[in-house]
């Protein structure tokens, strides 16, 4: 084989190589969100209420305890799961029931869920229960929203003030 032909073949091979590298470096394009879609992210970081109420220890019972363990209140560590429901225009789009992590199920709960929705106006409704001692939601929120295409609406829970925040 002549060296000229070999060079041509090499150029062809290098071109195939460049094409493969260049093409798959950016193509095919990936559509993460359609042009008319927006996204809602539910990002809740909150510790559920204690499963059982704290109990005041009677003085006689307290006296039986070693001096260093004599705390006036007995608070069981276990916390409640968090049940959360996000409804959009009457339709449930996110529903979650998260048990508290930790060996004693006493840790705070993190929920991070995203959902793609059509951009535009919607009626958003939130319900959350953070106590097994209460029937039904402990927190609710209702709001009209109007989302632009590609907009991200982040819903968080302000534990300190006990309310949902939408940003």
């Amino acid at each position: 084989m002549t060296s000229a032909l070999r060079v041509i073949l090499q150029i062809i091979n290098y071109t195939i190589f460049m094409f493969l590298v260049g093409y798959f470096s950016i193509y095919p394009q990936f559509k993460h969100l359609e042009d008319d879609q927006a996204m809602i992210t539910l990002a809740i970081s909150h510790a559920g209420e204690r499963r059982e109420e704290c109990r005041k220890i009677p003085p006689e019972e307290l006296a039986k305890l070693p001096p260093n363990m004599r705390t006036p209140m007995d608070c069981p560590r276990e916390r409640s799961p968090i049940v959360v429901e996000l409804t959009l225009d009457g339709k449930v789009v996110i529903s979650d029931n998260v048990e508290p992590p930790g060996l004693y199920a006493d840790q705070g709960i993190d929920i991070f869920q995203s959902i793609k929705i059509p951009a535009g106006k919607h009626l958003l409704s939130l319900k959350m229960n953070d106590s097994v001692r209460v029937e039904g939601p402990t927190f609710t929120h209702k709001q009209d929203i109007n989302l632009e295409p590609a907009q991200l609406l982040v819903i968080q829970f302000d534990s300190e003030n006990g309310k949902f925040t939408l940003n």
Partner: peptide, 28 residues
Amino acid sequence: ALSLYMPAESHAPADLGKVPATLNIDWF
């Protein structure tokens, strides 16, 4: 040659309030 013909480019700057819609994914 590939670098000169097809320079690597960025997408729009990251915006924490927006969701990236169309992405040129590096499939590798």
